[in-house]
Amino acid sequence: MAVEPLLATRAQRAFILTITLQAIIVLTMVEVKVPFTEDYKTLPCYLALFALAEIFELLMAFDALRLRNVIQLLGILLFHMALIVMAAVQIHQTETALLNGKVDCTTTINLINCDGPGSLWRAVKPFLIVVPCVIAAAWFVMMFWIKELYSEFGWAIFHVVGANPKMKRMYQWYQIMLCLLKFDFFFFVGVTMQLLIIVLARSTAEFGVTVAAIPVVLVLLALCGTAVQREIKWLMTISLVMMLAASSYLYKLVRIYEPQTRDLYATTRVSLTIFTIVAFILLFGTFAVGLRCFSDFDRGLQASKVNGQSYTPVVTKLELFGGNMSQQQGSYNGGGALAPRISIE
């Protein structure tokens, strides 16, 4: 039985094609040409978030197929559900941003901040409604192909860690950790983008602190990924401690709802709340899984972590009745013959 190369099967090609077509349709729908001003910059932020989300999802899909990572595929399904929720929430937020009551629509003709024929709200509303419908339809198609990929990728995991259930379980926790780190990146950037575009004034100290936090968090995520893969204990310890410190970012929720600052977040309160809570849950989950992965250090999994990140076609021959198992060719042993046993790398 062979482990197929990237995009060599119908299920892999169909999965990528589904995400690509959905991304093209969604980005075409949400691209609205409006001035970037204080009153209605929710729309440019909405476009920026969806552009980031669609590109991120497509890259995650290619990465999951490259790594034969079923857990990451399931994470993409959950992420896609979050996109549906975000698209639905943006309908109300966009209406709040445009029809904000700052203009007396009974005496003034204003096609930007008033409802009515020819208004901006009437123009963008159909597109805002279609977007979650398209994303939801793509989600059902993705579910079908992920089911096919689940069966296809089961053999690939065997080639990384062998048949030992304990090793397989440890490798799955490692895959979960890497997947969480990738989603941590997106939701942190999503929260930061909304704060910088919509809420924070450039002259404030909070704006500077938020900008400065971007490289710090990105470096943290990269170092944590390296530490868990290479099993570097001191670096993993620093990463876990910094995760606990970063969880203090939850204080943003207080800023969103306290009376002194709640008006600043009026047009993005719902989405920013969702992003902040999800980011905190993911960060806390990453910390917990990181502890679990830390406990698996020095237990014989490091070689599989380092060498199992890419796959080439592997041909195996099982002689069940003869009691022998040999590999004719393998990407992890340089093509040399193995002893008649299942090895755990």
Rank of each mutant, 00 (worst) to 15 (best):
E54F: 10
G162Q: 01
C114F: 02
E57Y: 03
A48W: 08
P126V: 11
E148F: 06
R202Y: 03
M177T: 01
V160G: 00
L6R: 04
R255N: 15
V216R: 02
H159Y: 04
T226E: 07
A2S: 14
T18S: 12
L181Q: 08
Y174R: 05
M86A: 15
S151Y: 13
Q260C: 02
G225N: 12
S271K: 01
E152G: 05
Q12I: 03
V70P: 06
N69H: 10
R292T: 15
K147W: 13
H159Q: 11
L49C: 01
L250Y: 03
L128G: 01
I16E: 06
L181W: 00
G75A: 10
T237Y: 03
L47F: 14
F275T: 00
V103E: 02
L235Y: 05
C179P: 09
P132F: 10
A64F: 05
I135V: 15
F284L: 14
V278G: 01
Y311V: 08
V199L: 04
L21R: 11
R68G: 08
T107P: 03
F158T: 11
T268S: 15
G290K: 01
L272M: 14
M325V: 13
N100H: 07
M81C: 13
K166S: 11
G208R: 13
K33W: 09
T107N: 04
N69M: 07
V216P: 04
Q72C: 10
A213G: 12
A339E: 15
V191I: 13
M236A: 15
N164E: 13
S151R: 13
A48M: 13
I342L: 14
A48G: 08
R66E: 10
M177H: 08
V217A: 07
L221Q: 04
A227I: 01
V89W: 07
L291R: 11
A2E: 15
A212H: 01
V289A: 13
V30H: 04
L244C: 14
T276D: 05
Q72T: 09
Y251Q: 10
I256L: 11
L178Y: 02
L17I: 02
G300Q: 03
